[in-house]
Amino acid sequence: MIKTDIIIIGAGPVGLFTVFEAGLMKLKCHVIDSIAQPGGQLTEIYPKKPIYDIPGYPSVLAGDLIDKLVEQASPFKPGFTLGERAEKIKKVKDGFLITTNNGTTHNAPVVIIAGGLGSFEPRKPKIDNIENFESKGIHYIIKDPTKYETRNIVISGGGDSALDWSLYFAEKNIFVDLVHRSDRFRAHKDSVKKAFEFEKDGKMKIHTFSEVVGVNGNKNLETVLIESNKKVKEIKTEFWFPLFGLSPKLGPISNWGLKIEKNAIVVNTFDYSTNIKGIFAIGDVNTYPGKLKLILCGFHEAALAIQSAYKIINPDKRYNMKYTTVQGIQGF
């Protein structure tokens, strides 16, 4: 069981900045996120897009902002449970018990939900028996690539995730069949160029205007059917990774007894507390009159929520707020 002061659900920009704000008040945080790396939608959806409304940054790439926030939070040594979705919550004597879909348990007196638009669920291709092979050769998210180091693999998609993983495996001399519905790729141009170079070197085969249309196997995946120009070819493989991106769903949080309106958690703007004492909601996941879904508003909400969180965690202590220019950063 992981014990901490504050469980933060969501490792996006607002969740990461909460770690920093909590750290200033000597509160330790543990962050849970369904994606395998920090950053939320900034990393998952638009890492290469510039953001222009972060104070002090005339322009910053979404991915770079996340790197900076991770660096800013690092003196406070946050714990992370990544690639697991916060599934269940239970009120216990000393706060809350949160269990993920993998069964990891976390305990803290305060929970701060910074879940953005919810947990990211993979977009699944429509193939009849696909469910039979999920986690038995078909994986929508690659958490630990060393598990898949075999002779050859198949990857579908044209975005950064599909290309980056194709290059990763090809570099390890694992032959990759990359299957994409057209000859346009959303991925970074350099990655696409490198993939075509790898194809020339015989390390991968890029199937454009193609789709995986069927999967077969006994218990585990054994072959996939690739359709190109109305011809179907069967390829032997132990692993197929359909990487068509992820889309967010509020998911299990909606069943936690929180007051919800239009897919967002209703909060009190005094401290962004929810209807359950000890649970706060900040960033895109909350709603209140005048709500603006901006990263900078989420940062403000984090700072205020932490003030009330401190009082719950330390009911008998008074906190004397000092500027960082006065006290500096005293990490853990």
Partner: peptide, 14 residues
């Protein structure tokens, strides 16, 4: 534009 087309290419029901 190309970015929009590339996004649409990545959706199974486009």
């Amino acid at each position: 534009d190309d970015d929009e087309l590339a996004m649409l290419d990545d959706i199974s029901n486009s």
